[in-house]
Design a protein around this nucleic acid. Sequence first.
DNA 1: GTATAAAGTTAGACGAATCTAACAAAGATA
DNA 2: TATCTTTGTTAGATTCGTCTAACTTTATAC
Lengths: 217, 217
Amino acid sequence: MYSLAEENYLKALLNLSSENGEVNVKELSSVVGTKMPTVTSMIQKLARKKLVHYESYKPPKLTEKGKKEAALIIRKHRLMEMFLVQKMGFGWEEVHEIAEQIEHIHSPAFFEKMDELLGYPKIDPHGSPIPDRQGRMHWQHHPKLSECKPGTTAQFVGIVNSSDDFLRFLNSRELKLGAKITIIETEDFDGSMTVSYDKRKKETFSRTVAERLLIEK
Amino acid sequence: MYSLAEENYLKALLNLSSENGEVNVKELSSVVGTKMPTVTSMIQKLARKKLVHYESYKPPKLTEKGKKEAALIIRKHRLMEMFLVQKMGFGWEEVHEIAEQIEHIHSPAFFEKMDELLGYPKIDPHGSPIPDRQGRMHWQHHPKLSECKPGTTAQFVGIVNSSDDFLRFLNSRELKLGAKITIIETEDFDGSMTVSYDKRKKETFSRTVAERLLIEK
DNA sequence: GTATAAAGTTAGACGAATCTAACAAAGATA
DNA sequence: TATCTTTGTTAGATTCGTCTAACTTTATAC
């Protein structure tokens, strides 16, 4: 069993590496909310436990074992988010905080039951994949809305870096996962785009927004 | 906010004092699973925080503030147990372990939602009262089955010191909370009693068992 | 009512996770 | 290339919760 602190570093390591490819100590320290020397010593500890490959001054990298452990924590996090939304009626912007704590609960039966009650979901409420029991994560690559040309219609299937703020923004525009978005026009000079979907006939998204919406054609 | 360790001592303090009246350090140490010196130092720390009244060599006693905090932790524990049984389909003998961990989750919204989905229950799956939002616990005194005379019929409404072992024993005899139990006869020499209820026409309980079943006439 | 046993406390150490201050390496800049 | 800046590491201290060993107080037994 791993400590709470260890689990948080493992998770951060996996999240950062799948976002940026490489992980650096500074970023890690800001994600886990500690100072750099603390990160260094934790990385060294994880390396002793064969969870991380580590050489001084080089970016730390999860071992296969480390990846699996991290994925299993993320599995618990995402299953819980799904449960909170689907079975308890929370909004997708409310569940991160709670799942952040529940992911450290040790009880295979609890999460198995949740998985079963949810019908073995493959993605969480924000469209991120839920790793399987063996800690295998099936990352499906989705293009960003910002990469599409006017005229295309695509389904909104995921979010890059979903923060509560951004989710509240999407709520305010009534944009939900699964919506069919049609691009009406794009502005080259600032990358903003005008789109339509569901109840919204005409809505303008900044480049920043369009870059955080993942789609499927 | 209190640490995990602090919360565990508070809870143990309230549980022991409602069972035995007075709490002693040795018992406390066995309940929380630490050695006596650790308990002493924790008690002293809780006293500094005005959660416990403490004088050397005297039994520690929760202050009003301490009682409230402890009750709020027990509230979370029992709400969770109820949720696990009612909404997730767990057996009453499986839920303690999980609730033991979830009781430390900090999220008013999570427990409020649970309470709401459960319809604001007053008791947990073992018949123990669930403290209210203000940390008030309505301890209703129930007599034990062992105190009843032959011929009486009473409803089984609670358990003294419910352990998973005991709950599995009750499962094996198909005795559920709410059952109407009729006492057929009692044996004076060993305190055992023969009873009937629901599907069971004739079942014999030892004194030990009869003393752990709470009833209402 | 003294001796012994049990319960409780104090002192001091330790591991985990954190910090600050000082130093070292790598990367960027002129 | 030499210098400066950024990033990362080492050393050493701190806090929390725990321990063991030794001591003290209270309770029990004779």
